[in-house]
Simulated assay, not measured.
Amino acid sequence: MVRATAQARVPGASGLLSIGQVLAKLNPEFPELSPSKLRFLEERQLITPSRTDSGYRKFSATDMDRLRFVLTMQRDHYLPLKVIRGYLDDFDAGRQPELPGGAVQAPSMLSSERRLSRDELIREAGANAMLLNDAVSASLIVPADHFGEDVLSVLKSLVELQRSGIEPRHLRGFRAAAERELGLIENALMPVARRKDASSRAKAAEMAREIASQLEIVRSSLIRSALTRLDS
């Protein structure tokens, strides 16, 4: 994953993938991925595919690993591209970066993130079916056939909270708060969201993650401030 070689020209592009082949491989896992999304990620320097002499983009296995990593961190952890790029810049420099707050464990660059069945989710979280059902009823977890690492983290946290007497039903206000924040984000994105082209949709999605990231900073600061008052 050395960025210096990413813009190299590749005469035959043997063993490399075209945009169409990349979409064919990744769309089953990331159905929102499109040619415009790939170009958008390239503009943001998250991926840097090679070019043929004719100027066509070609993606190596390393490019695919990097792309899958970026898409996974967006989909499952809702991280803005600015944060993901900072992580990758440190990674490229040979450092051992951590994602914000250390709360999110980055998936391997060499494989896609696991998708867990309901039984696997319950077992790995150390939970039980009733707790998962309560979390779904409280709108803390969205029901699905398979779950990502983010849901596993949520369920693990609910297991720990339950030990302190805090049940999913006590957290119903979290969903309402999230919906209010979504309203703020939608209003902020309205000028961009009115445009129907694919590039604008990709820009709006990234802006939404950026705004959500800033809201998370404010929320965390308020909680830390409240805890300080509690300690005093």
Results as ranks from 00 to 15, higher is better:
residue 108 S to D: 07
residue 144 A to R: 12
residue 179 E to Q: 10
residue 176 A to L: 03
residue 43 E to I: 03
residue 119 D to Y: 02
residue 192 V to G: 02
residue 201 R to M: 04
residue 157 S to Q: 14
residue 158 L to E: 08
residue 20 G to Y: 08
residue 219 R to C: 14
residue 226 A to G: 15
residue 46 L to N: 05
residue 57 R to V: 02
residue 120 E to N: 08
residue 74 Q to W: 07
residue 14 S to N: 15
residue 136 V to A: 15
residue 98 E to I: 07
residue 157 S to P: 08
residue 151 V to S: 12
residue 39 R to C: 00
residue 3 R to F: 04
residue 24 A to C: 00
residue 181 E to V: 02
residue 74 Q to N: 06
residue 31 P to D: 03
residue 200 S to M: 01
residue 149 E to L: 04
residue 108 S to G: 03
residue 1 M to H: 03
residue 71 L to F: 08
residue 79 L to W: 07
residue 164 S to K: 13
residue 18 S to P: 14
residue 7 Q to Y: 09
residue 92 D to S: 04
residue 116 L to V: 09
residue 61 A to L: 06
residue 89 D to M: 09
residue 26 L to T: 06
residue 48 T to L: 14
residue 194 R to V: 02
residue 26 L to V: 11
residue 85 R to C: 06
residue 197 D to G: 04
residue 38 L to G: 08
residue 203 K to T: 06
residue 169 R to Y: 11
residue 143 P to I: 09
residue 104 V to H: 04
residue 227 L to H: 05
residue 25 K to H: 09
residue 101 G to S: 12
residue 149 E to R: 14
residue 99 L to Y: 07
residue 88 L to E: 05
residue 87 Y to A: 05
residue 204 A to I: 01
residue 12 G to L: 13
residue 187 N to T: 01
residue 103 A to L: 13
residue 221 S to G: 14
residue 75 R to A: 10
residue 128 N to D: 12
residue 105 Q to S: 12
residue 175 R to L: 01
residue 78 Y to T: 10
residue 212 A to F: 07
residue 38 L to K: 09
residue 203 K to Y: 06
residue 188 A to H: 00
residue 144 A to N: 11
residue 102 G to C: 04
residue 150 D to K: 15
residue 207 M to D: 00
residue 147 F to K: 12
residue 173 G to R: 10
residue 22 V to S: 02
residue 200 S to V: 02
residue 43 E to W: 03
residue 94 G to W: 05
residue 191 P to Y: 00
residue 113 E to M: 12
residue 232 S to G: 13
residue 216 E to V: 08
residue 184 L to E: 00
residue 15 G to T: 00
residue 6 A to N: 06
residue 228 T to A: 12
